[in-house]
Design a protein around this nucleic acid. Sequence first.
RNA 1: GGAGGAGUGGCAGAGUGGUCGAUUGCGGCGGUUUUGAAAACCGCAGAUGGGGCAACCCAUCCGGGGGUUCGAAUCCCUCCUCCUCCGCCA
Length: 441
Amino acid sequence: MLDIKYIRDNPDEAKRRLATRGVDGGVIDEALVLDAKWREIKFAADNLQAALNKASKAFGPWMGASKKNPQAPAPKDLIDALGETPATPDAAKVALAALGDKQAATQRQADELMQQIEGSLLYVPNLPSSKTPVGASEADNITRKEWGTKPQFTFTPKAHWDLLAGQGFDMEVGGRISGSGFPFFRGKLARLERALINFFLDLHTREHGYTECWTPFMVREETLRNSGQLPKFIDEMYRTDARDDLFMIPTAEVPLTSVHAGEILPDESTPIRYCAFTPCFRREAGAAGKDTRGILRVHQFSKVELMVVTTPEQAEAEHEALTRCAETVLERLELPYRRLELCTADIGFGAARCYDLEVWAAGVGKWLEASSCSHFSDFQARRAKIRVKGKDSGTRLAHTLNGSGLACPRTMIAIIENNQNADGKVRIPDALKPYYGNEWL
RNA sequence: GGAGGAGUGGCAGAGUGGUCGAUUGCGGCGGUUUUGAAAACCGCAGAUGGGGCAACCCAUCCGGGGGUUCGAAUCCCUCCUCCUCCGCCA
């Protein structure tokens, strides 16, 4: 969520920065009008409350005094608050109740305005960082680096669904059990999936300093609001019925971001680096008919996620470091990849800046997004109320970052398609052999 | 699923209708003392929002939400979380 104070002080800048992502500035103008109204009414409500507090404080002693001496004069604070001199404590009670009603009504008005402001602000994406390249579409993303060389073949490399047909790659079985887009692996592919997960986790925990977490896979609405998926992307979520009303997580980012929700962390405790394996559940409502073959785009997949909570000062360096951790996975697996810096038109809803890592898949002949490493600045922290506090720096919102490290299906596709032989055999990368337990798939 | 108990400031732990943002201890910060440190003593310390050029002032916050009352940490309702016991089941 954006900072209403920032919007108040820099409305034109806010609109200009939102415009670079194709967001109309109208929401900003609306928020400003509501905010001005809110402040006026809130001020009135506060003043009424202050008068009421003073009067209530003076009331008790006066009532006591009146019992002994009915002539006891009404206290000044009470007269000030009521604007008249009450004849008796009972008369004052009636007048105070009326004043209380007026205060409550004013407060309610203020609350409703604030709800309106927050209600619309929750749908506004983050402001792009000043370093994010301005662009109009994904065509304006910038390739920051390319690593490795695409494999050369003396034959036409097959796509994974052809290469693996009849070898435990059972999309139809998944379909029978759950519907299309739910992969079912048998035998060596199931083992490969498990090997990848273990390889990812070991690398990040042993070499990159991340703390492994095991998280719930179903979460509350509030948890999804913290990390930015709700309310806007509700159509992307699997949701249980009203008895429990829980959501299946679309990524481990969701539970990990809420680990420190509501906390004020000492600066020295940051950066906090977490990684977790979870299955990810996505309805892919907007992507129907796209990437339908094989496991290019599925409703359930495995992923190891990296997530960092840090100070604003360290965030940029942590973002680079986190991206390097994800790249290291691809390098160890000898998979050619490129790092794209997404432009303003293509970065995700909550991101201020984002690198996509795309891995080359020789069979489908495409670069596949295997990781998206995002810097959220204080966008998620404001929603989740994650703050950091230092001796000299005071209390401020934390910054959060996350990225896949990596997603299994696309990593698996790249391994299989890039390492295939003419006879259909697939070589397992050296780094993965100890986990998979064999040189060939 | 059933029956109980509990949730207070960084932590521990008082407080059962009015002067309580809240006693106290520990921890933290500043100071006195000391060659230095420890100890002792003194002092300062929360978050959020609003108003003001500012000094500063006001409001809110005792798990969340709602209610009773002139007035709620304190009474009532509801939800959440944790603990104990029973039942059921991986």
